[in-house]
Simulated assay, not measured.
Amino acid sequence: MKWVRPDDVDYDATCALFNAMIARRPAVIAACASADDVREALAYARQHSLAVAVFDPDNVFRGNQNIEPAA
């Protein structure tokens, strides 16, 4: 899994990949490649009381995705 944080050089480019029309500045981005990565990312979010938003690159280009944190 790749973790991207605001102080990383590729943070802005990674954020733009989500949806260039909507500005989001997440505390951390977890680029998951497996179910284990997803479990690790969710555990990290839970441990640090972070809101979670799920991004699926297969859906974003069809316009089905607007990343909003879960309530």
Rank of each mutant, 00 (worst) to 15 (best):
M1D: 06
M1Y: 03
K2F: 02
K2V: 08
W3E: 15
V4E: 14
R5W: 15
R5S: 15
P6L: 05
D7L: 06
D8I: 07
D8V: 04
A13D: 04
T14N: 10
C15A: 00
C15M: 12
C15D: 12
A16Y: 13
L17E: 15
F18S: 14
F18A: 13
A20Y: 10
M21W: 15
A23P: 14
R24Y: 07
R25G: 14
P26L: 03
V28E: 13
A30L: 11
C32A: 10
A33N: 11
S34A: 14
S34P: 02
A35G: 11
D36F: 01
D37R: 01
D37P: 04
V38K: 09
A41S: 02
A41E: 01
L42I: 01
A43N: 09
A43S: 13
Y44T: 02
A45E: 07
Q47W: 08
S49M: 14
S49R: 15
L50H: 09
L50G: 08
A51M: 13
A51N: 12
A51G: 13
V52R: 04
V52C: 01
V52E: 12
V54K: 04
V54S: 02
F55Y: 01
D56F: 03
D56G: 00
D56L: 00
D56W: 02
P57Y: 12
N59R: 02
V60H: 06
V60S: 03
V60N: 06
F61Q: 00
F61N: 08
G63I: 03
N64M: 05
N64Q: 01
N64V: 07
Q65F: 04
Q65W: 04
Q65T: 02
Q65G: 01
N66S: 15
E68V: 10
E68D: 13
A70P: 09
A70C: 08
A71R: 10
